Lab assay of single mutants.
Amino acid sequence: MGFKLLSKLLVYLTASIMAIASPLAFSVDSSGEYPTVSEIPVGEVRLYQIADGVWSHIATQSFDGAVYPSNGLIVRDGDELLLIDTAWGAKNTAALLAEIEKQIGLPVTRAVSTHFHDDRVGGVDVLRAAGVATYASPSTRRLAEVEGNEIPTHSLEGLSSSGDAVRFGPVELFYPGAAHSTDNLIVYVPSASVLYGGCAIYELSRTSAGNVADADLAEWPTSIERIQQHYPEAQFVIPGHGLPGGLDLLKHTTNVVKAHTNRSVVE
């Protein structure tokens, strides 16, 4: 069995187990497998329904001669939608809004960016022009300005110390501490036991640490421990890039980060 097929099978099995364990909360999309990078042309966006009122959005972007996937989250909030992270750029984010209108038909009224990198804030200006209120932590807003990236308009308070959590509509926002970046936030959907790890969490097929220019490698494993301790009931975990899975993604990420750190020390 090929690795790609095995990865998709694991996603399907995880979703099936969740649907059985929580039949009222989960209505997993039966329309197909989780979209992969090879299936999404740059400039297009796919939506994948995880649970009743919960979707991931998947886009792709060219970077350094390669094409990478990027995940975000959409959560229903009454007759409105909360968006977590842009679709990595203005063109993708405009396509995301169009796809949401086509498939869901509810307005996106608020959006949260989970850290300051372009795959999370690139497209904020498109959201703002569409009347979406954009939010991020003060740290993310400051770092985005320093980096020359787009800056969300509103500040999220109460997320300055490791372990801080605040309720934001249908989700809980959690600051686990520094990891992929010093400002990275985690998003949890309690009604569906869905954990969105953003770039602080890796997919299972990833074996290298990737972009760690703004990471705190020493603190990252401790931050992941905080996530595990705060959300032990999480059933569906979405990484910032690639295929979702279960809580095993947290341990896998820790292993990859520690291996990278150990290699760096040896070198």
Rank of each mutant, 00 (worst) to 15 (best):
residue 166 V to T: 07
residue 193 S to K: 11
residue 70 S to K: 04
residue 195 L to P: 01
residue 131 G to Q: 03
residue 69 P to G: 06
residue 110 R to W: 14
residue 39 E to I: 12
residue 243 L to W: 12
residue 202 Y to F: 00
residue 170 P to L: 12
residue 17 I to D: 02
residue 108 V to T: 12
residue 35 P to R: 05
residue 80 E to Y: 12
residue 32 G to E: 06
residue 81 L to Y: 10
residue 57 H to T: 06
residue 37 V to R: 08
residue 100 I to V: 11
residue 163 G to P: 08
residue 105 G to V: 07
residue 78 G to A: 03
residue 172 E to F: 13
residue 183 D to K: 01
residue 235 Q to L: 13
residue 38 S to T: 05
residue 176 P to C: 12
residue 215 A to Q: 11
residue 114 T to P: 00
residue 228 Q to F: 15
residue 92 N to E: 13
residue 26 F to S: 06
residue 237 V to E: 04
residue 143 L to H: 14
residue 44 E to V: 09
residue 99 E to G: 12
residue 168 F to M: 03
residue 235 Q to N: 13
residue 238 I to S: 11
residue 81 L to M: 12
residue 104 I to S: 08
residue 147 E to K: 04
residue 91 K to V: 13
residue 125 D to R: 09
residue 238 I to H: 05
residue 205 S to N: 14
residue 204 L to H: 09
residue 267 E to N: 00
residue 1 M to V: 09
residue 28 V to I: 11
residue 210 G to M: 11
residue 119 D to M: 02
residue 141 R to E: 07
residue 67 V to F: 13
residue 69 P to E: 05
residue 6 L to R: 11
residue 10 L to W: 12
residue 162 S to A: 08
residue 190 P to V: 14
residue 15 A to S: 10
residue 85 D to E: 13
residue 103 Q to G: 08
residue 160 S to W: 06
residue 15 A to P: 01
residue 253 T to H: 10
residue 170 P to T: 06
residue 150 E to G: 03
residue 53 G to L: 08
residue 117 H to L: 00
residue 254 T to P: 11
residue 45 V to L: 06
residue 258 K to V: 12
residue 165 A to S: 10
residue 102 K to Y: 14
residue 27 S to Q: 05
residue 146 V to W: 09
residue 88 W to L: 00
residue 91 K to L: 10
residue 264 S to M: 14
residue 94 A to W: 12
residue 197 G to M: 03
residue 146 V to H: 06
residue 3 F to S: 04
residue 115 H to T: 00
residue 89 G to I: 01
residue 70 S to G: 08
residue 84 I to A: 13
residue 234 A to M: 03
residue 202 Y to T: 02
residue 211 N to T: 09
residue 69 P to M: 12
residue 142 R to N: 12
residue 72 G to H: 09
residue 28 V to C: 11
residue 146 V to Y: 06
residue 95 A to I: 06
residue 63 F to C: 10
residue 59 A to F: 02
residue 78 G to N: 14
residue 136 A to T: 08
residue 22 S to L: 06
residue 71 N to Q: 06
residue 239 P to D: 12
residue 83 L to F: 04
residue 233 E to L: 09
residue 130 A to R: 05
residue 197 G to V: 08
residue 121 V to F: 14
residue 50 I to Q: 10
residue 95 A to T: 11
residue 27 S to V: 06
residue 113 S to A: 12
residue 174 F to G: 13
residue 45 V to G: 09
residue 192 A to N: 04
residue 92 N to Y: 01
residue 109 T to K: 12
residue 75 V to F: 04
residue 94 A to E: 13
residue 249 L to W: 05
residue 64 D to P: 15
residue 6 L to G: 08
residue 108 V to W: 00
residue 151 I to H: 00
residue 211 N to P: 13
residue 38 S to Q: 11
residue 205 S to A: 12
residue 82 L to G: 05
residue 25 A to H: 15
residue 78 G to C: 03
residue 115 H to K: 00
residue 75 V to A: 05
residue 37 V to K: 13
residue 6 L to V: 07
residue 173 L to G: 10
residue 20 I to K: 11
residue 20 I to V: 09
residue 174 F to A: 11
residue 189 V to S: 07
residue 105 G to P: 03
residue 161 S to N: 14
residue 79 D to S: 14
residue 264 S to Q: 14
residue 82 L to M: 14
residue 75 V to E: 03
residue 81 L to I: 13
residue 70 S to D: 13
residue 201 I to D: 08
residue 94 A to V: 12
residue 258 K to W: 05
residue 213 A to W: 13
residue 168 F to A: 12
residue 95 A to D: 10
residue 171 V to Q: 01
residue 164 D to M: 05
residue 200 A to R: 05
residue 133 A to C: 15
residue 110 R to N: 09
residue 111 A to Y: 07
residue 205 S to Y: 02
residue 139 S to N: 00
residue 172 E to N: 13
residue 129 A to T: 04
residue 139 S to R: 08
residue 174 F to Y: 05
residue 133 A to Y: 00
residue 258 K to I: 14
residue 149 N to S: 13
residue 76 R to I: 07
residue 165 A to F: 02
residue 144 A to C: 04
residue 82 L to W: 13
residue 236 F to L: 02
residue 235 Q to T: 02
residue 217 L to Y: 01
residue 157 E to T: 14
residue 224 I to N: 12
residue 48 Y to W: 03
residue 115 H to N: 00
residue 214 D to G: 11
residue 25 A to R: 04
residue 197 G to I: 14
residue 120 R to K: 15
residue 148 G to E: 06
residue 51 A to T: 02
residue 1 M to K: 02
residue 150 E to P: 00
residue 215 A to Y: 14
residue 194 V to C: 15
residue 102 K to T: 13
residue 117 H to I: 00
residue 32 G to S: 09
residue 106 L to N: 11
residue 114 T to C: 00
residue 151 I to G: 10
residue 15 A to Y: 15
residue 121 V to G: 06
residue 207 T to L: 09
residue 189 V to M: 14
residue 243 L to D: 07
residue 25 A to D: 03
residue 185 L to Q: 14
residue 10 L to Q: 04
residue 132 V to T: 14
residue 117 H to P: 00
residue 10 L to C: 08
residue 186 I to V: 10
residue 209 A to G: 11
residue 101 E to T: 03
residue 22 S to T: 15
residue 53 G to S: 04
residue 150 E to C: 00
residue 129 A to V: 14
residue 49 Q to P: 05
residue 166 V to Y: 01
residue 118 D to K: 04
residue 101 E to Q: 12
residue 168 F to G: 02
residue 88 W to V: 03
residue 263 R to D: 02
residue 132 V to C: 11
residue 73 L to N: 09
residue 44 E to S: 06
residue 101 E to Y: 01
residue 196 Y to C: 05
residue 235 Q to W: 13
residue 226 R to F: 02
residue 229 Q to A: 13
residue 10 L to A: 08
residue 137 S to V: 06
residue 179 A to R: 00
residue 118 D to M: 01
residue 244 P to R: 12
residue 117 H to E: 00
residue 1 M to D: 12
residue 74 I to M: 06
residue 26 F to T: 03
residue 54 V to K: 10
residue 259 A to M: 01
residue 157 E to N: 15
residue 153 T to H: 15
residue 71 N to Y: 04
residue 252 H to Y: 11
residue 15 A to W: 02
residue 74 I to S: 06
residue 3 F to G: 07
residue 150 E to I: 00
residue 59 A to E: 04
residue 9 L to T: 12
residue 132 V to G: 10
residue 177 G to I: 15
residue 60 T to S: 11
residue 141 R to K: 13
residue 118 D to T: 12
residue 9 L to G: 07
residue 95 A to W: 10
residue 32 G to K: 06
residue 197 G to C: 14
residue 51 A to G: 07
residue 3 F to A: 03
residue 176 P to T: 07
residue 84 I to P: 00
residue 59 A to G: 05
